[in-house]
Amino acid sequence: MTENNQTQLGNTLWKIADELRGAMNADQFRDYMLSFLFLRYLSDNYEAAAKKELGKDYPILKDNDKRTPLAVWYEQNKADVAEFEKQMRRKVHYVIEPSHLWNSIAELAKTQSKELLHTLQDGFKYIENESFESTFQGLFSEINLDSDKLGKNYEERNKKLCNVIQTIAEGIKAFDKGQSVDYLGDAYEFLIGKFAAGSGQK
């Protein structure tokens, strides 16, 4: 990715953050934006490693199949899941369950699933506490998915998160074709700088 494209991606994500944060100030929304971006980074890295680990056994899905390849593999190879996760912990040093991968979360957001919030809560908890010893302990501690800033009740918070995640997913999609996972790290650093500077605060 060129430096110009990196800047464009960073500006796109910053614009998304500024438009979607609603009643939150920049510092409050920062934790949500960066957490979702980091989940995308972890997921991409994990899926790339899983594809390498499984080789020819890694499922190739049709374009209209909205499941993740790992979700299909888990379903078809239940007896081998424990050994696979053991290898992933040894080689990648963490595990993400198929339902907690970014692409799974983004699909829930796209379809406005009522289970998005619950799935996010379960996913963050799993990554922090069960993924691999203490590697990610407290990783998402700054993000409150039950905050009144997201909505007065579960339904409102779920709808808000669906909109936020869907918009982030669409914003990233325009830039990620053929890119290595490292470009997300560049975008992450860009946003940290923007938030630190306090730009765009209302």
Results as ranks from 00 to 15, higher is better:
residue 34 L to H: 07
residue 186 D to T: 05
residue 40 R to K: 15
residue 62 K to G: 01
residue 38 F to C: 00
residue 144 N to G: 00
residue 198 G to E: 07
residue 198 G to Y: 02
residue 36 F to Y: 11
residue 156 E to I: 03
residue 116 L to I: 05
residue 49 A to Q: 12
residue 148 D to H: 11
residue 7 T to Y: 13
residue 103 N to S: 09
residue 30 R to P: 02
residue 30 R to N: 03
residue 48 A to V: 10
residue 7 T to G: 01
residue 169 A to Q: 12
residue 154 Y to S: 03
residue 168 I to A: 00
residue 88 M to A: 10
residue 106 A to P: 02
residue 189 E to H: 01
residue 21 R to Y: 02
residue 96 I to A: 04
residue 41 Y to I: 10
residue 108 L to F: 07
residue 140 F to K: 04
residue 115 E to I: 02
residue 51 K to N: 12
residue 62 K to W: 03
residue 76 Q to D: 14
residue 34 L to M: 13
residue 12 T to G: 06
residue 138 G to M: 04
residue 144 N to P: 01
residue 104 S to C: 12
residue 134 S to G: 00
residue 161 L to Q: 06
residue 71 A to K: 12
residue 93 H to V: 08
residue 74 Y to D: 10
residue 100 H to G: 01
residue 36 F to H: 01
residue 49 A to K: 15
residue 66 K to I: 14
residue 98 P to Y: 14
residue 156 E to V: 01
residue 93 H to C: 02
residue 114 K to N: 15
residue 180 S to E: 08
residue 82 A to P: 06
residue 130 E to L: 13
residue 161 L to R: 07
residue 182 D to W: 10
residue 139 L to S: 07
residue 101 L to P: 06
residue 6 Q to G: 03
residue 163 N to D: 15
residue 158 N to A: 08
residue 175 F to M: 00
residue 188 Y to F: 13
residue 92 V to L: 13
residue 86 K to G: 01
residue 149 K to Y: 13
residue 194 K to Y: 00
residue 44 D to M: 15
residue 87 Q to M: 09
residue 115 E to F: 05
